[in-house]
Nucleic acid binder design. Structure first.
Lengths: 149, 149
DNA sequence: TTGGAAATATAGCATTGGCTACATTTCTGT
DNA sequence: ACAGAAATGTAGCCAATGCTATATTTCCAA
């Protein structure tokens, strides 16, 4: 009945526990929002020369106070800058995050389509999946896609 | 400069907007926790005959008050039942969710491994990815895996 | 059987991320 | 040039999800 020493599996080597996986997933969840915002701000800046709160809010499907509050957090984290009543711009750190996220997004969509997921569903699901794809998995996706087209 | 009618793409048909995708991802994020808990409670119940708060907390890597509070939400949503100072059990609805989540989890891991992701990374990433895989994508994964082994 | 250890419950705090309502500033058309 | 429209900012509310600290209950072993 004692569940105390049941955890250690066969090998006593460095092992990834359930808790590790869940903790990892929680950590990712807390950065996912930043990734969405930086990517979107990069898109809007490219399209319009600046990213305005109203446009950010509309694209994300949230109200503008919500977008505004998120931008405050982005600024606090050094990912964006803005002046009152003006557009939002990414810092170098924010732009780097946006580039990285965009590359990951594209790769995830390409992989989903490659294994037979309809493009529409691939785009939809990638929006959530992309945040959880590790560097290792990304490399595997690249190898898989590279080796077949 | 007017960004108002830039949104409508080429076809005026039913179109999935960015906002739709983000709204979908947010909705999923809010059910992900329930999915993790029901799956875990099912596992523990199978292993030990009941799911205890302490075990739930340890496996998820959170403190027990956190697990307790989450279980209160599960009960409120009709996914679990429990009596004070006793183990937690799934309702039929909770058990159904657990079964569905577990099947999805296994399929995601299998697919990741099939495209070349190392098993350890596949397990890690699946913990987050699984929540975002739609029915359509799941079907595609099944077809892909079925057609190659 | 009873006292200490373990498990569970609860109170209270912080942050995130959503909202509505309202204030302020900027833009724009006449 | 200015009035109304649009955009932005801010205040305040709520629920979720984490935490620590402190009860309370149950379990187990001497």
């Amino acid at each position: 009945m004692s569940r105390d020493e049941l955890a250690p599996g066969p090998e006593t080597t460095t092992e990834t526990t359930d808790a590790d996986r869940f903790t990892n997933a929680r950590a990712i969840r807390s950065t996912a929002l930043f990734e969405d915002y930086t990517e979107l701000i990069a898109d809007l800046t490219e399209e319009f020369g600046e990213a305005r709160i109203t446009d950010i809010a509309r694209r994300l499907g949230v109200t503008h106070p919500t977008a505004n509050k998120a931008v405050l957090r982005l600024k606090r984290e050094g990912l964006a800058i803005s002046r009152p009543y003006r557009g939002v711009f990414l810092t170098e750190a924010g732009a780097a995050m946006a580039r990285e996220v965009k590359a990951r997004h594209r790769l995830v969509v390409r992989l989903l389509i490659a294994v037979g997921v309809p493009p529409e569903a691939a785009e939809m699901d990638a929006e959530g999946i992309e945040h959880y794809v590790s560097e290792t998995t990304l490399k595997a996706f690249e190898a898989y896609l590279g080796g077949r087209d």
